[in-house]
């Protein structure tokens, strides 16, 4: 597969969230604000790309019996590298992120791509696949958080859109709203682009 194809398949055609229903927990947890979603997405893109690259480089020497432990170790190491880097060099952003960086370790898309792609493909292809999967995930987070922040706070990326007359929808700030929006998004995409039967 060409790199462009790998990227498009990973980001859109076989999107981890709307096609494989992975990464749902964090998609529900962090999507109340667009800024949180973007930062979480960038962290996931970095970790996915480099974890995929590393796992692919060592794939020929990795014994099958310990491969998942090795993958977890590599993913966790990259997440901690991101955390330390931000704390030392971008402390303000690190404080804003709070527990999000640590949450990346629990994202099942990382293990999913490591196991399904990186452990069987070349390093550069795996790197592109990681970026694609991360971009696809970030796109979903931003779509959900756009609706939640707009109706829940009346803002987009913290900038007021509706003004003081707007009555904030408290339900949009709370986790259950993400369930409804995500479900509607999956339904819409599957019926429109994949011709799924309703």
């Amino acid at each position: 597969m060409k790199m462009k194809e790998i990227f498009i398949t990973s980001a859109f055609t076989e999107n981890s969230v709307w096609r494989q229903i992975l990464g749902i927990c964090s998609a529900l947890a962090v999507t109340n604000l667009m800024q949180n979603s973007l930062i979480m997405g960038l962290g996931v893109i970095f970790t996915l790309a480099f974890a995929n690259l590393t796992i692919s480089i060592i794939r020929n020497w990795t014994p099958r019996s310990v491969r998942m432990m090795v993958q977890t170790l590599i993913i966790a190491a990259y997440v901690i590298i991101v955390d330390i880097f931000l704390k030392a060099n971008l402390p303000v952003i690190s404080k804003q992120l709070g527990p999000y960086v640590g949450l990346i370790i629990t994202n099942c898309i990382l293990m999913g791509r490591a196991e399904a792609f990186a452990s069987q493909n070349k390093p550069l292809d795996s790197f592109i696949d990681g970026i694609g999967a991360g971009v696809g995930y970030t796109l979903v987070l931003l779509l959900i958080s756009f609706v939640r922040e707009l109706f829940g706070f009346g803002t987009i990326f913290g900038f007021p859109v509706f003004g003081s007359w707007w009555t904030k929808w408290s339900i949009m700030v709370m986790a259950p709203s993400a369930f409804f929006i995500l479900a509607m998004l999956i339904w819409y995409i599957n019926t429109t682009f994949y011709k799924a039967k309703v």
Binding site: W61, T62, P63, S65, V66, M69, V70, L73, I74, A77, I80, I81, I84, F85
Partner: peptide, 21 residues
């Protein structure tokens, strides 16, 4: 082999993290 491999990986990555920290 798996035990040695895992051990090397742990030492390598924990070492990188420890130095970085």
């Amino acid at each position: 082999f798996p035990i040695i491999f895992m051990l090397i990986m742990v030492i390598l990555f924990v070492g990188i993290l420890a130095i970085m920290y």
